[in-house]
Write a protein that binds this DNA or RNA. Structure first.
Lengths: 146, 146
DNA sequence: AAAAAGTCTTTGATATATCAAAAAAACGAA
DNA sequence: TTCGTTTTTTTGATATATCAAAGACTTTTT
């Protein structure tokens, strides 16, 4: 069914890149414009730690949908920036708990504000119902493949 | 409006990563399972060349939403694999036309089949109307930020 | 207790993305 | 023609993602 294939091809490029990289690039640009020298990937780690501090690296893998080596190196870089520190878990010495430093706590308000403003820009003309539907469909896609 | 902020935060992680990286990883995995040693990024270049051969690097930037250095290095790697060749444009010596080699043409059928099968997996339980809706919303997001 | 299996993290190799800057060619205006 | 600007591509530096393999520690099994 070639018509259907064509639709799928289109959706592929839409889902896989366009919108998500556009949002990522804009957010990075807005961070830089505000003088914030962190990457969005680093920010996404901080984002989860602001919700719950001192998560294990494995837990950060689960919450950010990244693999273990990616997290290891992201935490390496966040440690170099002195935004987080690794704390060996007293209960299980295999585990590193990743905890926020004061510098990271100061970033919370400003970066969340910028992220919200960026999403406002991105969602101009998009209704709340549409947002809900997109979330549901993309969640279905994720669940189909996980 | 904290409730609204929370919704945006959720959408951010949905749009920016989950579904698109899940699709990308699955497609890469399916390529490897079929013994195909190309990356999805390389495949996305071939995809556009199958639609229209001998595009300039700049045109590939536009069609794949990538920047120039990314395209330069992707073409470098595709040339190493002997899948494409750079041909200097006779009309404008600044321009490299990127043209398919025979090896790349042989990949077309099998990789498009795998890509369609992957999208079938990804879209189980998603209706045609939902697909259209998601495409429209993500296109709006892209247009808002471009 | 010792061996086996499992979990969490790290390392190495390779590919891609981004920013900034430079090189090469084309174009336009004085 | 020559200078300045624009366009196309490349290079360098740094950050991230992925796969495979290894290291460190725990838990389970015998």
């Amino acid at each position: 069914m070639p018509n259907n294939n064509f639709r799928r091809g289109e959706l592929y490029s839409v889902i896989n890149g366009m919108a998500s990289t556009a949002v990522a690039r804009r957010l990075q640009k807005n961070f830089r414009a505000a003088g914030l020298e962190i990457t969005i990937e680093q920010w996404s780690i901080l984002y989860h730690l602001w919700k719950e501090d001192c998560l294990s690296q494995q837990e950060l893998c689960n919450r950010t949908f990244r693999d273990k080596p990616s997290i290891t190196r992201l935490i390496d870089n966040l440690e170099k920036l002195k935004l987080v520190k690794r704390v060996s878990s007293p209960e299980d010495k295999r585990i590193n708990l990743v905890c926020l430093n004061d510098g990271a706590k100061e970033l919370q308000d400003i970066t969340l504000r910028i992220a919200n403003e960026t999403m406002d820009e991105a969602l101009i003309g998009v209704t709340r119902d549409e947002i809900e539907m997109v979330k549901n469909v993309l969640q279905k896609v994720y669940d189909n493949l996980k």
